[in-house]
Amino acid sequence: MRAVVLVGGFGTRLRPLTLSIPKPMLPVGHRPIVENVIRMLAAAGIDEVVLGLGFKPEPFVEAFPDGVCAGIPLHYAVEPEPLDTAGAIRFAAEHAGINETFVVVNGDVLTDLNISALIAFHKDRGAQATMHLTPVDDPSAYGVAVIDDLGQVQRFVEKPAPGTAPSNLINAGTYVVEPSVLRRIATGRKVSIEREIFPLIVDDGGLYALATNDYWIDAGRPEPYLQANLDMIDAVRRSAFAPAIEAGAKVDPSAIVRHSLISAGALVEAGADIKDSVILAGAIIRQGAVVHGSIVMGEVGNGASITDTIVGATGSVVPGVTLVHALVPDPTLL
C-alpha cells in the first residue's frame, strides 16, 4: 500500500524558523518531522510514500538524494500552484498513478497511531474514506466529527466557533482513502477535503472514523513544536525516543542543560544555562547566555537572556539583552 504525505504548506505559524527551511523538514527528536512520519508509515507496511510538495521542494530532494527515507522509496509530486488539501491529495495520487486504497497523512502530525489498525477498520466498514480522530479540550481550531457506535460519521464541522462544537473528537490528520474519492475532487482550483469533500462523503454514508487516545500532536505551531521535541526525551511516546544531546553537539562542560534537546552541529559555550528548550543544528549559545523555553537556530550572544523566544537561522540576539516572547528576526518586519 502507498501513502501520500502532504508537505506543501508555507509554515507561516512557525516563522522565523520556516524562513530558511520548510516546516516538515524541521527536526523533532533530531530527525525531520517528515522522517518521523515516514517511519510511522513504514511500521505499518507502507511500501512507497508520495510527498505532495509545493513550497520549497528542493530541501526535501537534497535531504533524500537517493529518493529513499527510512527505507521507503519516495515519489515527489510538486504542485504547480497551491491546491489546498483535497486538491493536493488528488494531484499527488494521480501524479504517482495511485489506483487502489491508500493512506494520507498531514506532514506536521506526529502520532503513535497504529496505522495498520486504521486500515483494517476502513476495510471492515467498507468505507469510502476513514479518518483518525483524537479528543482535545478545545476543538474549535480543528475539524470536528460526530460518529455513531459503528464509527460512521454523522456530521463533520470544520473549525466550529468556540463553544459550538458537536463533540471533542477532532480530525487528527491521518486518513485511509479509496481512489473513487479522487473523482469527487475538482481540478483547476483549490479544494478543501475538510470543507468540501468530507461533507459530501458524509451525505453518502461513506465516511467513517476511528477515535483513539494514542499520542498525537500537531507540530505546526511553536508551542506544540517545542513540546513535540521535549516529548521525545520524556518517554511519553510509545514508538519514538531521542537523546537529549545528540552526538556531534558541542556543549562546554560548565554549561547547565536541563530538560532540553541539543542537536549535532550546535555550539553551547561555557556558563550557558539552557532549560526546556530546543537548540537546533547551527545554533550558537554564547558564554553565560540564558535560554529558557525557547527554540534556537541562530545565535544568542554573551550574557543574553531569552525566554519563550524563537531565534531563526539568521537571527542574532545581541549580548546582554533580555527578551521574552520574542521572534528573532521578527517576520512582520521582513
Results as ranks from 00 to 15, higher is better:
3 A>E: 04
7 V>Y: 07
8 G>A: 09
10 F>D: 02
15 R>M: 13
19 L>D: 07
20 S>K: 07
33 I>C: 04
39 R>P: 01
40 M>Y: 10
40 M>R: 08
42 A>W: 08
42 A>T: 05
65 P>I: 07
69 C>P: 01
71 G>Q: 05
73 P>G: 00
88 A>H: 09
104 V>Y: 15
113 L>S: 02
114 N>C: 14
116 S>C: 12
117 A>V: 14
117 A>R: 14
128 Q>F: 13
129 A>P: 03
130 T>D: 01
130 T>P: 06
135 P>D: 07
140 S>F: 11
142 Y>V: 06
143 G>P: 01
148 D>C: 04
150 L>V: 09
155 R>M: 15
156 F>V: 05
158 E>G: 03
159 K>S: 09
165 A>P: 14
176 V>R: 11
180 S>Q: 12
181 V>K: 06
184 R>L: 15
188 G>S: 08
190 K>N: 04
199 P>V: 12
206 G>W: 13
208 Y>M: 09
212 T>D: 09
212 T>F: 12
221 R>M: 15
221 R>G: 07
223 E>Q: 08
228 A>D: 02
232 M>W: 13
238 R>N: 14
239 S>I: 14
241 F>S: 10
242 A>N: 04
245 I>L: 08
249 A>M: 12
253 P>W: 15
254 S>K: 04
254 S>W: 11
255 A>H: 04
260 S>A: 05
261 L>H: 01
268 V>F: 04
271 G>L: 10
271 G>A: 01
273 D>H: 12
276 D>P: 02
279 I>R: 00
288 G>I: 07
288 G>Q: 08
290 V>K: 09
295 I>F: 10
298 G>M: 10
299 E>Y: 05
303 G>T: 11
306 I>M: 11
308 D>Y: 11
314 T>N: 13
318 V>F: 10
318 V>P: 03
319 P>A: 04
322 T>R: 00
328 V>W: 09
